[in-house]
Design a protein around this nucleic acid. Structure first.
Lengths: 200, 200
DNA sequence: ACCTGAACACCGTTCAAGT
DNA sequence: ACCTGAACACCGTTCAAGT
């Protein structure tokens, strides 16, 4: 079968999730595609573009069926938890791309829905981009920390010099920690000084 | 002058802040040290150790004069803002190490002070490591997003499909956004269900 | 003990040559 | 248009040989 751009991104994504981003090589990628390493350069300008393409492919999988009839709190909750689910499905690539710019774009449904929800929450238009940006930053930290394993490591650390280590958090524990952060985010929006609460 | 382990870390840190982590090379590092590339391996096992050493050197600069007489809210505020200042002083290296494990260790004064503050806030001992872990995760996201420039980019994005872009945030704006996240963190701790508020 | 040159096994990418 | 082999300019690291 011939090489296609999307085929390159798909195989790259598979290799990344198997061995990590740092193990991805143009030569290995070509081998997995049964192609000559140099053939890739006829479909893709360079390695950076491969990583960008794989990232975009994951991003396109984010299908938010944003339930617009629900209260904004529930909509925000769904969005952020959906984002987390997607990140947990592609841990290796997401760990990579959460740490650099450009993984959330202005025309992503995630960004559009997020700003829409914040408008529904009663935030004035000029405040929305900055509040949305801080929410994305918080979400970034939660997911990077969970995906790299630091958060599990921290949660296991002793809280006092003499104390023993805590039991490692299980998946339900991590879910609870994510919801704890989420509740803080919701409270921050609710208490934003410029917010005009919806009447009724 | 002879090569020393600390000298290697210091020069590595300088090169990293000048050109970024990905531009650091054992060969360039040796050149900056006026040494043969292979000489480094007599003082350091490999490149990973160089990055770990440089990271530890930045971490040791975190001098928290934790004002224990202040209310826990003020102590927490100081700690997190001090952390941010340190990160802003070493943006390139911090961007790198915030994205991987092990940059906060159990015997770091940052961790010890953080757990101490949470105890002063009235959190039960068994809850402290997990709350501390989520706070570190939030802080990680804020700083990664600020250092990579995503948060500035997001804050500049239009909030509605028809709307124009917002003005780029200035340093005071970024400070305000950091305080916004900080207030959310404080509120999360204050409202933690297991917290026993201090009397008086 | 410390340094060094040559060498090995890799990279990403260019380019001229093939079909 | 698409593919390919050789080659270039790099990497990190090993190792035998030097002082």
């Amino acid at each position: 079968m011939p090489i296609t751009e999307d085929g390159i991104y798909d195989v790259a994504l598979r290799l990344i999730e198997a061995d990590g981003v740092e193990a991805l090589t143009m030569r290995k990628l070509a081998m997995a595609l049964n192609a000559n390493p140099m053939s890739l350069y006829h479909h893709v300008p360079n390695k950076e573009a491969v990583l960008r393409g794989a990232t975009a492919r994951v991003g396109s999988r984010f299908s938010t069926r944003d339930p617009q009839h629900l209260p904004w709190q529930d909509r925000l909750r769904h969005m952020l938890l959906d984002f987390r689910e997607l990140a947990l499905e592609h841990p290796k690539l997401m760990t990579y791309c959460l740490g650099r710019a450009e993984y959330i774009q202005p025309d992503d449904s995630f960004w559009l829905d997020l700003t829409d929800v914040l408008a529904a929450a009663g935030l004035p238009a000029e405040e929305i981009p900055r509040v949305a940006a801080t929410l994305c930053a918080t979400l970034t930290g939660l997911m990077i920390s969970e995906l790299t394993g630091v958060v599990q490591q921290w949660a296991t650390l002793p809280s006092a010099p003499g104390g023993g280590p805590c039991p490692a958090p299980t998946r339900p524990d991590l879910d609870a920690m994510a919801r704890f952060v989420l509740n803080g985010v919701l409270a921050s929006v609710e208490n934003h000084p410029a917010r005009v609460p919806e009447q009724g």
